[in-house]
Design a protein around this nucleic acid. Structure first.
Lengths: 164, 164
DNA sequence: TAACAGAATCTGACTTGTCAGGTAATCCTG
DNA sequence: CAGGATTACCTGACAAGTCAGATTCTGTTA
C-alpha cells in the first residue's frame, strides 16, 4: 500500500512506455523547433514567431490581415499579437493601417522589406527542414510519413480549442 | 529581377509546400503540447516543465540528480533550471541537498509529495495522450507511426546541439 | 603548495509571452 | 434612435524563460 508500489501495475507500465515514446516525440519537436528558430534568427535577424507572421501575411496578400486574424492563426493571445506586431512594425517589416470598413480594426500588411525578408527566410527555412527533418528519415518512408503528419495535424488542429 | 518574381520558380513552389506541411506538423505539436500541458496544470497543479522534471527525477531515483543533469535533459539553460527547481522546492515537490563528493554541486531529489504527484500526473498524462494523439489516428497506423517517431526523435536528438 | 584554468550553480537585467481589465467602435433590439 | 451587449484592439502587472557575468569549488601543474 505504499505509493511506490502503484507504478508496478501492468497498466502503469504501459502508461509509462507511452509517456516515454511521446516524450521523445515532444523532445524531438521542441529541439527541431529550437534549431530551426535559431537558424532563422541568426541568418535573417527575425524571431521564429515573426517568421510565421511574415508567412501568414505573405499568403494573405492584398489588403493584409487584421490583428485578430493574426492571433487566431498563431498560438498567441490577442495581447501577444499586439506586442509581436509592435516589434515587427518597429523593425520595418509590416505596417498597420486603419480598416476603412471598421474603425475598431487595423489591417497589418507587409512592407517591401517584409516581403524580401519573408522570401529569403522561407528559402533558408526550407533548406533547414530538409537537412534536419527529412534527410535522417529512410528515403522510402518520407512520403508516407508526411501524409501521416498531414492527417494527424488536421485532426489535432480541429480538436484543440482556440486561444483568445 | 524584381524580388517578387523569385517566389514563382519551381524550386520556391516546392519549398513553399514543404514549409506548409512542416508548419502543420509544428502547429499540431504545439497545440498538442499546449493541450496536454493545460490538462496537467489544471488536474495536478504543476506546470508542464515541472512534470517533465518530476518524471526525470523519478526515473533517476536514488540519490537524485545534479542541476546540470536536469538542465541537460530539458530544453532549458542552467539558469532556467535553477529557477524552475526553486519553484518546485517552494512547492514541496523536491529537495536540494549538497553533493558530498563535490561541494559545488547540489543533488535534487523527489520528496514523498513529489513522488505522489509524479505518479498521478503520469496517469493523467497518459490518458490525455491516448485521447488526443492516438485516438484520431487510423487504428492500423498507430504502431508503425510510433515506430517512425521513435526513429525520428532519436536522429533529431542526436543532431541537435545542447543548450548551456 | 600557490596559482590558475575550468566546472557547477546562482543572480541581475532583460525579453517576450500571458492574463485581466480597459477604451472605442459596432451591432442589435425594443 | 437610445442604450446595452459584443467586438477589436491595447495596456499594466506579472510569469518564466534567456544571457552574461559573479561566486565558489575542484583539479592540475610548475
Amino acid at each position: 500500500m505504499v505509493e511506490r508500489a502503484e507504478i508496478s501495475t501492468a497498466k502503469d507500465a504501459a502508461d509509462h512506455e507511452l509517456i516515454l515514446a511521446f516524450g521523445r516525440l515532444q523532445g524531438a519537436a521542441n529541439r527541431l523547433e529550437y534549431l530551426l528558430g535559431r537558424a532563422i534568427e541568426q541568418e535573417c535577424g527575425i524571431s521564429h514567431l515573426m517568421f510565421e507572421v511574415l508567412l501568414i501575411l505573405g499568403r494573405a496578400g492584398g489588403q493584409g490581415l487584421s490583428m485578430g486574424a493574426i492571433s487566431q492563426e498563431q498560438v498567441l493571445t490577442t495581447g501577444g499579437a499586439t506586442r509581436l506586431v509592435d516589434r515587427m512594425e518597429a523593425a520595418g517589416l509590416v505596417e498597420r493601417t486603419g480598416d476603412p470598413g471598421d474603425r475598431r480594426s487595423r489591417l497589418v500588411r507587409l512592407t517591401p522589406l517584409g516581403e524580401q525578408t519573408a522570401v529569403r527566410a522561407a528559402r533558408v527555412h526550407a533548406e533547414n527542414i530538409e537537412r534536419y527533418f527529412l534527410e535522417p528519415l529512410p528515403a522510402g518512408d518520407r512520403k508516407r510519413f508526411m501524409e501521416d503528419l498531414r492527417i494527424l495535424s488536421h485532426t489535432a488542429r480541429d480538436r484543440l480549442p482556440r486561444l483568445r
